[in-house]
């Protein structure tokens, strides 16, 4: 799953290496609009529905946080 998430991140911002980064937002690698694109892509690729109240930067700050969110989000 983590590789798939890294691939998605790379699609959104190909200029960055996301692996091993602790906080994508603090490092300026993702902004608020990238977050919306990321949610939409995760929903589609993992066939999940990320809850609107979970769309908080802390749930997308690194690969582990995203993987945990994908795990707990309901399937479509």
């Amino acid at each position: 799953m983590k590789d798939k998430i890294l691939d998605i991140l790379k699609e959104i911002r190909p200029e960055f290496e996301f692996d091993g980064v602790e906080d994508f937002f603090a490092e300026g690698m993702l902004d608020s609009f990238d977050l919306m694109t990321l949610v939409s892509t995760l929903d589609e690729r993992f066939a999940i529905k990320i809850d609107g109240t979970d769309i908080l930067p802390e749930n997308f700050m690194n690969v582990d946080a995203i993987a945990a969110l994908v795990e707990r989000s309901p399937k479509r």
Binding site: I12, R13, F33, D34, M36, T37, S40
Partner: peptide
């Protein structure tokens, strides 16, 4: 490419 993705999502 980034703008196009954003346009589709939003």
């Amino acid at each position: 490419n980034r703008s196009r993705k954003l346009a589709m999502v939003m």
